[in-house]
Design a protein around this nucleic acid. Structure first.
Lengths: 202, 202
DNA sequence: CGCGACGTTGATTTGCCTCAACGATTGTGG
DNA sequence: CCACAATCGTTGAGGCAAATCAACGTCGCG
C-alpha cells in the first residue's frame, strides 16, 4: 500500500510544475527527490500553533484547512487547500519562528512536503524554481488581497455568493460550519442566508 | 532643485537594502541606476484604476495610500506607505493586467520607481535581488494575512486599538477619515470609539 | 445503540451604519 | 489678505445586519 504512494504523488506535482514552466527530465527527477509524500488522516494536525512551520505543503488529494483560534476560542479559517493547492504558514516558514496558526485535515489527505533547507538547495541547484516559487507567493499575495477587500467591503451574504462562484467544488465537500468560519459569519447566519436563497429560487 | 533629488533618494534605498543584505559598491551602484526618483504632490495619483501597474514604488518621504472604490462608491484602504515602505499592486504588476486599485498621495511624496523589465534584468544581473524581493513579497504575505485575520476576528474598536499599537506614527499623521477607511468602519463610528476611550482614561 | 457533529429556526440583543446637523480648521481663488 | 468653500471631527436619533442564546431534528460513526 505504502510503497506506491511516492510515485503516484510526485507525478501530480511534476505535472503541476510543467504546466507553469516546462521541466527537463533531469529537473523533474531532481525536484521529485526533494519532496516527500505524507498521509494525514481526517482531524490530524499538519501544523499546530506554537510549532515552527518547517515544510511547504502541496496537496495531492484530500482537503486541509489553515486557521487561527482567537482569544474567545472562535475558529477563523484563512484558506482551504484541495488538490494542487499549496498551504503553509509562510511567515513561520521563512522566519523560522513559532506559528500562531493551525493546519489540519478535513479529509484523509496526501501531501508532498519539502523541507526549508531542501527548498533553499532547490533554488540554488535549479534557479528555475526561484521563479516558480516567486510566482506561487505572488499568487498568494493577490489572493489574500482579494479576500481582504471582499471582507472589508461586502456583507456576509455577498461573501457567500462569491464563495459559491469562486469555489463551487468546495461547497458540497466541506461542512457549512467550516464555510461559515471561512466567511467570518456564524453557522446560524449562514443557514439563514441559504434558506433565503432557496425561497428566492422558484 | 530637481537635480539633487536623485542622489538623496537613492541613498535611502541603498541603506534600506544594505540593512537586509550587505551590498558591494558595484551592486549598490547598479541598483541605484535602475530606480528613478519621482515627486508626487498631495492628492496626485500614482496608480489609477484601469491602468496597469508598471512600476514598483519605494517611498523615500511622504505618505501614500492604496485603496479600492466599491460599487457603492465607498473607499477601502488596503495599505498606507510612509518612509521605507513598498507599495504597488503586485497582481497587476506581475500579470501586466489592469488594476482595480488606486494609489495616491496623502502628502507630497518622493518615491523611487523601478520598471517591470528593469526589475527582471536586476534579477538576472544580480541574483541577490531575487532573494531580497522574495523576502519583500513574503513580508507582504505575512502582513496581509495578519490584516485579514484581524478583520475577520475583531470588532471595529479592537481593530482601532491594535492600529494605535501597530502604527503609532500614522495616528497623528493621516486624517481619521482615512484611518476609518483602513479599519473598515465609518468616520462617525471611529469618532465614537475615540470619545469613549477618552472618557475611560481618567 | 447512543453520542457528537451538523444544520435549521426563532427571539432577543448589539455593533455599526445612515442620515442629519453643527463647529473648527484648512486652503484657495478673487 | 480676506472670504468662502471644502474638508474634517464630532454628536445624536433611528435602523439594519449579524451575533448570541436556546431549542430541536437528523445523520454518521464508534
Amino acid at each position: 500500500m505504502k510503497s506506491n504512494l511516492p510515485q503516484i504523488s510526485a507525478q501530480s506535482l511534476i505535472d503541476y510544475f510543467s504546466r507553469l514552466i516546462p521541466l527537463t527530465g533531469e529537473e523533474a527527477e531532481f525536484v521529485a527527490s526533494k519532496f516527500h509524500p505524507r498521509l494525514f488522516r481526517k482531524r490530524q494536525f499538519v501544523l499546530q500553533e506554537g510549532d515552527i512551520c518547517k515544510v511547504f505543503n502541496f496537496v495531492v488529494s484530500g482537503c486541509l484547512r489553515m486557521y487561527k483560534i482567537d482569544d474567545g476560542g472562535t475558529v477563523h479559517i484563512i484558506q482551504f487547500a484541495t488538490e494542487e493547492w499549496w498551504i503553509s504558514d509562510i511567515g513561520s516558514f521563512y522566519r523560522e519562528q513559532p506559528s500562531v496558526l493551525n493546519i489540519d485535515a478535513l479529509e484523509d489527505t496526501v501531501v508532498l512536503q519539502i523541507k526549508h533547507d531542501d527548498l533553499i538547495e532547490l533554488y540554488i541547484q535549479a534557479p528555475k524554481f526561484d521563479r516558480i516559487f516567486r510566482i506561487l507567493i505572488e499568487k498568494n499575495v493577490v489572493h489574500l488581497q482579494e479576500r481582504l477587500l471582499q471582507n472589508i467591503s461586502s456583507t456576509g451574504k455577498e461573501r457567500y455568493l462569491s464563495f459559491l462562484l469562486q469555489y463551487p467544488q468546495l461547497v458540497n465537500r466541506v461542512p457549512n460550519t467550516q464555510i461559515a468560519a471561512y466567511l467570518g459569519i456564524t453557522p446560524e447566519f449562514l443557514s439563514k442566508i441559504r434558506s433565503e436563497r432557496l425561497s428566492d429560487k422558484h
